[in-house]
Design a protein around this nucleic acid. Structure first.
Lengths: 267, 267
DNA sequence: CAATGTATTTCGGAA
DNA sequence: TTCCGAAGTACATTG
């Protein structure tokens, strides 16, 4: 017995009809195809784009995604996301690959095809990645001093539906403090969010002493200016510091979590 | 005479040494290479990742970017951005491709190579795209009725980077209108941006009649609620409509642009 | 399904 | 060069 499976099948300098057939056949079997040749590309959908004639690598993947790569750059110059319906046909000596997905459509016309290869690939390995996280908010809930001394947390759902979570607290002088956390360097949009929230809160309560604090590892210059001009505050909050606190309080956390659930039931 | 240039050079089932040589040779000539085969990948840098053995397509581009693609998904499962130094060598029957770029490094080990192809591609076409946020704004500048009848535009810098507010105008009753454009469906963050700007403007000028308009192709539910609750308005603005207007006014545009530059010099 | 945040974000333009 | 925000962002996760 030899190999049953042919991982790569090559078609060198195929005719237009043969090329179209190969692509359609692969698509029907849910196999990926790569095409090397001279093509032009047009796209209509979220925007419109035209890419004139040039030599490129086109990848039709088994999930319907379609990538047009030039010989430089990380990103494809044109593409369709997964889920597109892909068709190929021969048209007066050219190969036309078209893809549709909702209101988006893309069309690749190959004037010359150097190579087509169908891929019957096996790849079920999982992709393992380590080293990302941001549960700064939980850390602050358990150790409010990370933000400032004397802070008492009012809202404290440390159910991590990570999302922009505004924490409400009282400072040492009894003023309401709205805290917004960001795991990444704070941008203008983050400041806008805090401005919008605080301004709504002030409009509702007529309370003048409401403070707004943006807590993040860093903040860019424009954002900082906007923040200060708006009478709000920045607090540098290091991710590693938060993680250390979290580690330290981990046992307490699970215990408290249990107690709170008990409280809920008794309420 | 015949063709001088060979756009694609194929090496079918190459030996490990031959494969490594081909890759190194291509790299030295600044040519892209694609490799089909069985590989495993590890990456160290911004995070750490391991990808176990599987059949994949690897692209080494002429700018030093390195992409590992599976047969599904838009994104490469592993990659190095442009600017990496790429090396290839044969190591006890395997081909090892390594890439370094600052503190980042990636290593692809091919246990079996089905195909290597070096690409000597020509592709100097420009990529033209239409339908961006900036173009929506330009369209409204030339045809304010796209937003509402009687609107007069105050600020009208054509290719100004956005950042603050997109457009200031007066409505038919003389009220100040702040308009923010979004080419994509409007989200909460976009509403926040408008709230923040309008609230600052109101605080500064004590003017009560300031209107805020968010102009976008659509708006999601949460964003709409926030918008309305904040006393602001939504205006559906179709991308294609804007493009048609732009086409119509294109000659006028370049002329006006020229005149404005002239004004700057005379000022 | 919609909405929200993350990304080894990448990419381009302006300060 | 650095900074900053858009992207045809894609993608996972959670309500």
């Amino acid at each position: 017995m030899g190999e049953q499976r042919e991982a790569v099948r090559l078609f060198n300098n195929p005719g237009a009809q043969e090329c179209a057939d190969v692509i359609m056949s692969a698509a029907s079997k849910r196999r990926a195809v790569i095409v090397l040749g001279v093509c032009e590309v047009s796209y209509r959908g979220r925007t419109s784009s035209e890419l004139a004639r040039g030599e490129r690598l086109v990848i039709v993947k088994e999930d319907g995604s379609l990538l047009v790569h030039r010989t430089w750059g990380y990103k494809p110059v044109n593409y369709m996301p997964p889920g597109a319906m892909v068709y190929a046909k021969s048209d007066s000596g050219s190969v036309v690959i078209s893809a549709k997905r909702g209101s988006e459509s893309m069309r690749v016309v190959f004037h010359k095809v150097y190579l087509v290869a169908t891929l019957n690939f096996r790849d079920d390995s999982s992709f393992e990645q380590k080293g990302t996280e941001a549960q700064m908010r939980d850390a602050v809930v358990f150790y409010p001093e990370l933000v400032e001394k004397g802070l008492r947390v009012l809202t404290h759902e440390f159910q991590v539906k990570s999302g922009f979570v505004d924490l409400m607290a009282l400072d040492s002088r009894g003023r309401l403090v709205v805290i917004e956390f960001k795991a990444n360097p704070a941008k203008t949009a983050d400041v806008n969010q805090l401005i919008a929230y605080v301004s709504r809160l002030r409009a509702l309560s007529k309370e003048r002493g409401i403070r707004g604090v943006l807590a993040a590892p860093s903040i860019n210059k424009a954002a900082r200016k906007l923040l200060v001009d708006s009478g709000l505050e920045f607090k540098r909050l290091d991710k590693d510091e938060c993680l250390r606190v979290l580690e330290e309080f981990k046992p307490t956390m699970s215990l408290l979590s249990f107690i709170e659930k008990g409280d809920e039931h008794s309420a």
